[in-house]
Design a binder for these strands. Structure first.
Lengths: 233, 233
DNA sequence: CGTCTAGTTGTCATTTAGTGACACCTGTCG
DNA sequence: CGACAGGTGTCACTAAATGACAACTAGACG
């Protein structure tokens, strides 16, 4: 199974508003793409991800199924367009953090900013769609799996940025890799904690903030056992 | 798409040697299951995961394709049987760690023990198969994605154990969740670091050990800037 | 304007994963 | 032995995904 976009069909940033790129052809392509995404999300919301077939989506947009797969490598890819946007914004926010800021703090602030944008509808993010995705992640393993895969792939870029911030070489220093992994993990932990209902009626962004706080505090928890024990190592 | 095992086909721990369970029927089922797994891994090794069809596997074992899907919910599930065993062993090792040991240390030691077993062939793990899986994870996104999904699902059990060790309630305390996530993340970081060739010709277990060491040291990295002050290169 | 080219789409065929239904066979147990 | 239940094969079917090729059309250019 291919992943990403077929040749010549690279993602032309969907959500954020690039002004008319040029050419009627290009514009039509863009419109088709957006129509597919909008319709897909509408149907996903109505009937669920699994119960919605590609054909239903393409019929509604009035294009052939073949066309769908020229825009998206898989049905799940439609959902990932949103995550793609989230990630791009995350990178922007991260780059915008003051260069003197400690690594985890920068990651935390960037992450929380993005999540807030999704909740509030800033930066062109649709909060309703955000909720729809949350649901699909819980209900449909395929979407969940792809999302994890996507996140893991993108992690490399975060690693690079962190390494730059730290002024170390990611080819010889493990720390940027681990930090990026932890940051990635934070998103998933926040999601999991929300899904499992550990924290009730809390915003994702708040949970995420707390998760990062836990990471910043360090994970060296002693065993409980011996009362206010001095036992360490 | 279903995940897990069809009803009545629950995993009857494949690798570890449960002595003859009872009944010819049960034994035959077990043999079929193992034949499917062995044949699948052989073909995966020869032709790659994607290029191997379920039919090829079942033809070689001389059962119908339908039977395959009575044992495994998906083609990827065959590969995950190994990971399932790894995880079970990980939990055992974790439970066996002295109760006074700090959480991350216990996680680290359990993780490294399992990885060593896979490399050395202890506990009935086949090192060759382990290598085969590593390759598939790199080459075949489907396997990689399922593996991530599987790991994420299993994380809940680790969370529970960590919470017990810490003597806190996972329903109100985020720390066990984050620690479990970080531990999960450690495995993936080790894999990624090896795959990307950051560390050359090093054993997975050694890399994993180092990754955990980094986690234990904490992630509070300051920005590089040798000289304090927001000066940008 | 007419034409040529290249990019986009539709149609068709095909492969493969995965599932449901039902008949059949064979251990297991009374 | 005979009934029952669990496992298997066969058949039919849906749906995702991809390759090949023909048909259309925007855009470039003389």
């Amino acid at each position: 199974m291919r992943v990403g976009y077929p040749a010549g069909m690279e993602a032309t940033t969907a959500v954020r508003g690039c002004p008319p790129p040029a050419g009627r052809r290009e514009r039509k392509k863009q419109r088709t793409r957006e129509a597919l995404i909008d319709t897909a999300f509408r149907l996903f919301g109505e009937k669920g991800f699994d119960a919605t077939t590609v054909e239903e989506i393409t019929d509604a947009v009035d294009v052939s199924s073949r066309t769908f797969f020229r825009y998206f490598a898989s049905k799940e890819d439609v959902v990932l367009t949103y995550q793609e946007e989230q990630f791009a914004t995350f990178l922007e926010e991260l780059a915008a953090r003051p260069s003197g800021e400690p690594v985890m703090t920068a990651l935390r602030r960037a992450a929380v900013t993005v999540m807030r944008a999704c909740e509030e509808g800033d930066h062109g993010f649709d909060p309703e769609r955000f909720g729809c995705i949350q649901q699909m992640m819980e209900r449909s393993p395929a979407v969940f799996g792809r999302s994890l895969e996507h996140g893991q792939k993108k992690q490399a870029e975060v690693t690079r940025i962190i390494a730059e911030r730290m002024g170390v070489d990611p080819a010889s220093d493990l720390r940027p890799h681990v930090a990026a992994g932890a940051s990635n993990s934070a998103f998933r932990s926040a999601f999991e904690v929300l899904a499992c209902g550990v924290t009730k009626a809390e915003r994702m962004s708040d949970v995420l903030d707390k998760v990062f706080a836990v990471l910043e505090d360090g994970l060296n928890y002693p065993a409980c056992e011996t009362v206010p024990g001095p036992v360490r190592g």
